[in-house]
Amino acid sequence: MKRRYSLRLYLAGAVAARAGDEMSGPALMLTGFVLAGSTTDASSLLAGITISAAVGGPVLGALLDRAGRPGRLLAVALVLYAAGLGMILLGLGRLPFAVIILIAVLTGLLGPALSGGWTAQLPRVVLGDQLPRANTLDAMTFSVASLAGPALAGGVAQALGAPTAMVVSAVLIALALPAAWMLPARPGRARGARTTSVISDLAAGMRVIAGRQALARATLTSVLSCTAQGILTACIPLLGERVLGGAGRGAVLLSCTAISALVANAVLARFPRSTAPDTMIWASALVQAAALALATWRQPVVLIVAVLIAGIGEGPQLAALFAIRHREAPEHLRGQIFTTGASLKITGFALGAVVAGPVVTWSLPGALALAASTAVLAALAFFALPSVTVNSSEDRAMSS
């Protein structure tokens, strides 16, 4: 009898892939600076591999939805992403920088495979009654990755050099290949040939995201929350320098956020049905807003407490977002909805960081206040969308 795919294997693969992804950003920045000799070039590399995810996510998701064995396609995406990191490393200092940027952009197209593309497969791994707890555990892998990835990048770069950190990040992603390759196939009745084009599937997925009130609300609130998080991230070096006594100490703040998010989700995993995910989405945004407002005091102890509170908001919000996507997404569009959502969040984070740059230079408290205001806007946006839903007959039409 064929053994059932293990949730532990799924989580192990997710942690490896996502830790490698989280490690690749700092490693890419450090390697770009060491080999290209310019902070501008290093930032351009990171921007190229990040921003292109907004384009790649929906298309990758649509292809995953059309695949009879989506795990195989996911494994290919992981191989190509790891190979792209290797090509960037080998090309720096040898190829024209414009070519390196192009490689980074093409590699970034596959980035959503490590986040939304993976999570979209969870309902085929666990049974319905087990999904809420598994969903929270899946969200915890992001916190583990965001905690371990940057720390590994800094430690390996310090001990063995920045290029080695790039190699280790690619190896971590490659370690997830067996878990991805063995992901369950679609049920036999769902594996028939699709009669619609990829463009039609993309349009259908966008209609579902925009047309289902719960999904639209959760998507908008999460994207605005990510924008606030991007603004906070841009403030981290100055907060470290002015409040903690050194710009490098700002990284401790991100670690505190990741730890509290992990702990909050660990508690939530014990009581997975304690709070409705729709309530958790907007309430978590308000928790983050309160934390960001508290950070404007710029006192060391208060600042540490503030980022810990921010993590308490971020972790459960991610788990709630996954729960809503699993609940609302039609089976034939699940992958696209997850990867599109991941792309939108990445874009929101990048936009927040870009907008915050000049604001931080002008006023650090002003930037933190902007982040808090954006988080409040995220909560208000949840209630601002009209009640419009996609009905079941339209779902059936899109799946035919």
Score class of each variant (00 low, 15 high):
V223G: 10
T257P: 02
G91W: 01
A27P: 05
A16M: 14
S225G: 13
V168K: 11
A67R: 15
A353N: 02
A234R: 04
A369Q: 04
L127K: 14
A14Y: 03
C226L: 15
A82T: 06
A148F: 11
T50K: 11
R8D: 14
P184S: 06
A251F: 13
A276Q: 12
R186D: 08
A53S: 15
T50F: 08
L74V: 07
A148W: 07
P277G: 07
R270C: 13
A290Q: 07
A210M: 11
L30E: 04
G91C: 03
S400C: 07
R3S: 14
A323P: 03
A367R: 06
T389I: 01
V305P: 00
R72S: 03
W181P: 02
G245M: 07
P123V: 08
T347Q: 09
R334V: 06
G211T: 10
V198N: 11
L152F: 14
A397G: 07
F338G: 00
T233Y: 13
A162N: 05
G57C: 02
P277I: 08
A185D: 13
L368Q: 01
G245N: 09
L370T: 13
G56R: 02
A148D: 07
T31N: 04
Q299G: 11
Y5A: 07
A369P: 01
L220S: 10
G111E: 13
T233K: 05
T275K: 01
L45E: 04
P386F: 05
G246N: 06
F142G: 10
L308P: 03
T119I: 05
S274P: 02
G161C: 06
A266R: 09
L368F: 03
P237N: 09
P150V: 07
A83Q: 10
V252K: 00
S284G: 14
F271P: 00
V208E: 00
S387C: 05
L131T: 01
E328L: 00
R396L: 02
T50I: 07
A269N: 12
V287A: 11
Q213D: 10
L131F: 02
L60G: 05
A174D: 00
D201I: 02
R273F: 09
G192M: 09
F271V: 14
L370R: 11
L215A: 04
F338T: 01
V359E: 10
R242Q: 15
A381P: 03
S44Q: 07
A353Y: 01
G205W: 00
A139I: 11
A295R: 10
T361S: 14
L60Q: 03
L73N: 01
W282T: 06
V376Q: 10
A77K: 02
F97W: 10
L377K: 06
R270F: 10
F271I: 12
Y5I: 11
M280I: 03
G13C: 10
V223M: 15
M398P: 01
I173P: 00
W362D: 08
T50A: 12
V79M: 13
L175I: 11
L364W: 13
T141H: 09
K2S: 11
T136I: 15
A291N: 08
A162D: 09
A193I: 10
S393L: 03
A77I: 02
Y81N: 08
A162K: 06
V34E: 11
S343M: 08
